[in-house]
Amino acid sequence: MSEAKGKKFLDSYGGQTVDQLIAMESDYRIDSLVLAFEGALLQKQEKKKLSRIELDILAVEAMEREVNNGGYHQFFLNSSKKFAAILPSSLERIGCPAAAKITSDALAYLKISGDVTVAKIDAALDRLGDKAITDLGKMDNRYFQNKEAIADKLFTYIKANKGEIVLK
């Protein structure tokens, strides 16, 4: 896990460059720096197309936020579901194979044929009803038992691919 003791939490993205955010690693919590990257990329996506690396960051952060707050059911219920199709690959790319497997299993539970789309996720949740909350809860338990330091791995991935990330 991130060494957060004594480090500050960066409250929000304040216009920094990629290098400036990375340079803040010694003073700020890694999870807060990753959130700053997410905030910047969310702003950027309204105006410009994102790279695969940038989409990976958004997908992983959406999963972290939603699954930690309400499980995979919440991830599939909220707008974060738009990242469902790429999320397992994103997790593999950042070095989290266990989280990728859990997420793949959660997707497989939905029994979607063909491409995974927002509409197909919605239809699957409608078809499965309240049972999905309980069944996906099994994936949540696996996720919470997973010892992969996802934020740390994502930050390492950001540093390794910083040339492909543009925040403004």
Results as ranks from 00 to 15, higher is better:
A151E: 14
R93Y: 09
A108R: 08
K48H: 13
I158K: 00
D31F: 11
G39S: 04
L125V: 07
F9T: 13
I86T: 02
I102N: 02
S80Y: 05
A119H: 13
V116Y: 07
K111F: 04
K81D: 10
M139V: 10
D140R: 02
D27F: 13
D27N: 15
D140N: 11
D130V: 11
L107C: 08
Q16Y: 11
L136K: 02
A99F: 07
A36V: 04
D126K: 07
A160N: 13
E25T: 12
R127C: 07
G15R: 02
I30K: 15
I53N: 08
I121G: 01
I86W: 03
F9G: 09
L107Q: 08
D56P: 03
I30H: 11
Y143C: 05
K48N: 11
A100N: 07
N68W: 06
V60W: 01
Y28V: 10
I112E: 08
I158W: 02
G14L: 09
A106G: 09
Y28N: 08
E54A: 11
V116C: 03
L136V: 00
M63H: 11
S12F: 06
D152A: 10
E3W: 09
T134V: 10
V18N: 01
I121R: 01
R93T: 08
A124C: 03
M1D: 14
K131E: 02
G70K: 08
L50N: 01
E38M: 05
K138Y: 12
Q74V: 06
T103M: 06
S90R: 01
V116M: 08
E46T: 02
A85T: 04
I30S: 14
I112Q: 04
L110A: 06
C96P: 00
S2Q: 13
L125A: 13
N141I: 15
I158Y: 02
L35Y: 14
S79C: 06
L77Y: 14
E25M: 05
R127I: 12
K159W: 04
I158C: 01
P88M: 11
E61G: 14
K49E: 13
K138G: 04
G39R: 07
A23T: 09
L77V: 09
K138E: 12
Q145S: 15
F9N: 15
D105C: 08
L42I: 10
S90Q: 06
K8M: 09
I53V: 15
K81Q: 15
M63S: 15
L136F: 00
P97Y: 00
V60F: 00
Q145H: 14
A160R: 11
